[in-house]
């Protein structure tokens, strides 16, 4: 484990998580959640937990993003004030 890399990745994760709940474009929020899952997978792999990281990359960054975009295609794109 490299603690500097951990610190950078976790800081980016916190920034992306705050951004994904404050942005008003829901498609941007979905893309930010995909980036969040990908960075989380990098954190798992960097902590030598390859199996959890693999699952996070496949389910979190792949399937969940597709599900959320499919759900967004049935509703409006912009969040109401």
């Amino acid at each position: 484990m490299i603690w500097q890399l951990d610190l950078i990745l976790l800081f980016l994760i916190v920034v992306i998580a705050i951004a994904s709940i404050t942005v008003r474009d829901l498609l941007s929020a979905i893309m930010l959640l995909g980036a969040y899952s990908f960075l989380m997978a990098m954190v798992w792999v960097e902590m030598h937990s390859v199996d959890v990281g693999f699952t996070e990359a496949a389910v979190g960054a792949g399937a969940t993003t597709a599900f959320l975009i499919a759900a967004l295609s049935r509703t409006v794109r912009w969040e109401k004030k």
Partner: peptide, 21 residues
């Protein structure tokens, strides 16, 4: 090793999602 039925099934379904897209 890393992997398994769940992850492989998700990747297989992702190929179908790519076809639909």
């Amino acid at each position: 090793g890393p992997g398994g039925g769940f992850q492989g099934g998700v990747i297989f379904a992702a190929s179908f999602v790519l076809l639909v897209i």
